[in-house]
Design a protein around this nucleic acid. Sequence first.
DNA 1: CAGCATCCATGACGATACTG
DNA 2: CAGTATCGTCATGGATGCTG
Lengths: 138, 138
Amino acid sequence: MTQDGTFSIPGFLSETAPRTGDVYAADCPTRKLLDRIGDKWSVLILLLLGGGPMRFNALRRRIAGVSQKMLSQTLRSLERDGLVERGVTPTMPVEVRYSITPLAGELIEALTTMMHWAERRMDVVAAAQARFDARRAE
Amino acid sequence: MTQDGTFSIPGFLSETAPRTGDVYAADCPTRKLLDRIGDKWSVLILLLLGGGPMRFNALRRRIAGVSQKMLSQTLRSLERDGLVERGVTPTMPVEVRYSITPLAGELIEALTTMMHWAERRMDVVAAAQARFDARRAE
DNA sequence: CAGCATCCATGACGATACTG
DNA sequence: CAGTATCGTCATGGATGCTG
């Protein structure tokens, strides 16, 4: 904590430190990651595939609430991004296995850290929300 | 890499390992984190405030493309979540400073890791996309 | 400066039906 | 099993104008 009672993460951009490759500059590639992370299913799929390859309907059953359309669509974007690999075994009917690429592996570790934070702290967040809403109601 | 040519992250849920507190179970608190991370501005704001407290219009100027409405709205949810603190100095006109809480500090470290991955690897992703699109076009 | 209120467009997403 | 195609909805968020 700094002496004025605020918190700061060392090494991160402050208001006075603009630079090239700026995350906050709309066209930065980092924004693209946020867009992908932002969609409803990408992260869930990546984390799940991080546990090992899975078939289409196995994923569908495992992820509560995903529609067939969105699963298909999301898998395709992930494949396009080079994060997920699609392996087809030409049996009858065909067997399709999805797995993560080494590139995705690095990302998944970071995502996992985030999820662990959530598991540890979301109750604190929920409590904060309750307090906030209580103050608003009075 | 496993012997069948796929990758796996140790310690993560596989298809055969459902359990309580399941991230994939729709009502899991972890989904809530994803929803927050998912919105367009939360992460950007958190990372910026990670560099130190900032005033409203300073944030607005720094984050390219954010509208006044969304900045206001997002700051409020972050405050509600207990991740951002709002400090009002009753001058004329009022001065409002936003800063992160210790709780947010932990999360921001994980987010920072993700952003660093993006900075290092988004060019690889872009290349993968180009290859994918090229195959589709032929 | 630090917002709130309103209107409206886009697109993400879900439901449903159909295919090899 | 592993998808594609189409349609409709609803929320996100941008634009604009106003306030203390």
